[in-house]
Write a protein that binds this DNA or RNA. Structure first.
Length: 100
DNA sequence: AAAGTGACTAGAC
DNA sequence: CGTCTAGCCACTT
C-alpha cells in the first residue's frame, strides 16, 4: 500500500506544472521541492514518480543529461516525440528543459 | 542494526 | 562526445 505524504504531493504538483513540449530533470524537481520541505534527493523524486506514475505526466521527467530511465525509455521517448520534442535516440536536447 | 540497492548527479578522464 | 567514481538519501533485505 502507498499513501500520499507531503513530499510525494509536492513532487506531484511540480510535475503537473511542466508544460507540454518541455521536460525537467529529477534533480531540478528535487531542488524545488527540497527548498520547501528540506528533503532532497533526486533518487527520492524518481521513486515517487515511479510509484505514483498513474495520472502523472511522468514522461516529462528524466535525467539531468536528457536521457531516459532504461525501464521506460521506449515509451517515454515515444510520448515526448508526440509532444513535439526532438527526441534523439534515448535522449532529448538541452533546449527541451524547462529551466536551464 | 548493518549492508545492499536504485526511474540520480556532478565531476574527473 | 563517451565511460568511470564518489556522494547522495530513502527503502529493502
Amino acid at each position: 500500500m502507498l499513501e500520499i505524504d507531503e513530499y510525494a504531493d509536492a513532487v506531484l504538483a511540480v510535475v503537473e506544472t511542466i508544460p507540454a513540449g518541455k521536460v525537467m530533470s529529477y534533480g531540478q524537481i528535487a531542488a524545488v521541492v527540497g527548498a520547501d520541505l528540506g528533503r532532497g534527493g533526486p533518487r527520492q523524486v524518481a521513486r515517487v514518480v515511479r510509484d505514483l506514475g498513474a495520472g502523472v505526466p511522468w514522461w516529462r521527467v528524466l535525467r539531468a543529461d536528457g536521457s531516459f530511465a532504461p525501464e521506460v525509455a521506449t515509451r517515454q521517448g515515444d510520448r515526448l516525440r508526440a509532444e513535439g520534442i526532438a527526441v534523439r535516440g534515448d535522449r532529448v536536447p538541452r533546449t527541451a528543459f524547462l529551466t536551464v
